[in-house]
Design a protein around this nucleic acid. Structure first.
Lengths: 160, 160
DNA sequence: CAAATTATGTCAACAAGGCTGACATATTTG
DNA sequence: CAAATATGTCAGCCTTGTTGACATAATTTG
């Protein structure tokens, strides 16, 4: 049932020319970033959906494995989400044995986060296809070129 | 109320060593992609939230501006989402005058999508901060290097 | 031409993962 | 002791994805 609001002919306020890199805006890179990230996350997403976890769990597992012993506050700073959002997924990861909490050694209010063996294994399993994708994309690019790519990606991040 | 399940001392199943690039996995690039994309989308997100739109609207406005006259099916192929998801945001964009539908010239079932002036302006406004960010990240990288970056990003995308 | 296929729209329900606001508790700090 | 800090939790809301089912108009096919 195509909507009855479709016109037969473009009216005066219908733009027909494509937006292209002419305007000094690099639409190609903008789009490539979108597609690259979409596919980059698709591999772990597929693995996670089997365990009933999602992308949010992936991030938490990843960063806790990268920096075991980090506090909840560290994680909130890294992810830039609210503690209520974090609490939901963190609780599930703790309850299902992927992450342990340890009382802070100096400050007993803190909950230091550590992966379990199971948590480490999951993090590695999720990283593997992403690493494969990156390796493939870097194929044929020499170390200098790879350094430029890192520099570019780093330059895209807001300075802290 | 720190949970009563926090241990005082890491037990046997607590991994304390960080996951690092040793395992042949490039965790640095994995993380940089996450941070880069997060910040890359933050600029348009901030603009959109003022108009009551979200990231999904951004994508639709972007692609319709990139290829005016594309059909709904084209858009579904590009975004790889379901038509029900698309319908929600597309309807809002049409109702608020950012996008027009025109009956397909050969196939009258089709709804060709075109931006209005307002839609084009929005797409450009959203692209501008992203373009600025890219330009900044590319600063000091010569054309050959920029080509490698494009090659890398393209290589991250699944072949169609 | 009748039947099947295609392009699109729509209703309903559900899930993930963001958000805000408010409040509670334990611990540390001044 | 009072204030600040680290964390947890309840309740509700929003966006944006999902599935399944069904409807309509137009085109294509046998």
């Amino acid at each position: 049932m195509p909507s009855d609001r479709a016109r037969k002919i473009p009216d005066a306020d219908t733009i027909t020319g494509p937006m292209s890199d002419n305007d000094g805006i690099d639409f190609d890179i903008i789009e490539m970033l979108y597609f690259a990230y979409r596919d980059f996350t698709s591999d772990p997403d597929a693995i996670l959906s089997e365990s009933g976890f999602g992308r949010a769990h992936h991030r938490v597992v990843h960063f806790v494995n990268r920096q075991p012993g980090m506090t909840v506050a560290d994680l909130l700073d890294t992810l830039k989400i609210t503690k209520q959002s974090l609490a939901r997924v963190l609780k599930q990861l703790i309850d299902s044995g992927y992450i342990h909490q340890v009382e802070g050694p100096n400050d007993r209010r803190q909950r230091r986060l550590y992966p379990t063996r199971k948590g480490r294994d999951l993090a590695l399993e999720l990283a593997r296809p992403q690493s494969r994708r990156i390796t493939k994309a870097l194929r044929g690019i020499d170390p200098e070129g790879q350094k430029l790519i890192r520099q570019f990606l780093q330059g895209m991040v807001d300075p802290e």
